[in-house]
Amino acid sequence: MCVTAIVTLAITLIFRTSFTTNFAQGVISAFGAYVASFVITKWEFPVLIAIPVSMIVSMGVAILVDVGLFRRGRYVNALSKQIITMGLISIVTGLTPVIFGEVEQYMINSIVKDNFTIDVPGDVDISVTYNALVCVAITAVIIPLIFILLRYSKWGLSVRATASNEYIAGMMGINTHVVTAVSWGLAGALGALAAYMRASEVKVVTTYFMTDYQVSAFLAGILGGFSTFHGPVICALLIPLAENLVMAIFNILGLSELTRWSKVIIYAIALVIIFAKPQGIFGKKIEKKV
């Protein structure tokens, strides 16, 4: 849930400033996780150093993408940007084993070890790891922080201006290139953080392990409406909640074999909502001029 929220925020940032869906977000995040794993296993640094290092590397990669590719193309429009990000998937997938070696399994430690159990009335006790709590805490700090920055800081103002109209923002004296690059960097860093949080749960890093989150993030984005910053993030928090709710309902009704359908049900409901309200739950309707 926290992972989805952070990934969604990253994707929304890029969508708003670059006007494209970044399909490479997942692999760039995974690249960050590889870096973290490399730093921990090869150089034996503590986790608290590995996470910032991976975030900085991912940030670098993302900024490189924006500065090196998006600004240079002669015919760059929304669709070709999407295709460039798809090309990036292949490149990062191809490069990762070259850089980090193919054979080794990449493992990642939890941020904090140990777990405790909560007694609930019922058969199964809920086991909570401190790791998960730390992840929730990090998310609870990072996301409000970015929203406060977006709302009240000068940087936030320039991001919002660029998002609403890049051309006019440029005429008003905002360096839109810097704004876009910073957004990409921030998205890369957030991606790496999310990937580490995810990896600390599943322990093994693969190139595609963030793709599912990326897809959920896209769905959350369109469900919440990409025209706002808060909409996608709220929906990113809502979707897993709703999914767990459906699972819980099935469990209470004693239909536990139906729980594997819960994701399908939630996605279908999301589709119906989008069909009814194409601009998203929180989105503003934009009048199109012919």
Binding site: I83, I84, T93
Partner: peptide, 10 residues
């Protein structure tokens, strides 16, 4: 990947 990017860009 490189080919896709080059074609999309130029």
């Amino acid at each position: 990947g490189v080919l896709v990017i080059i074609i999309a860009m130029y």
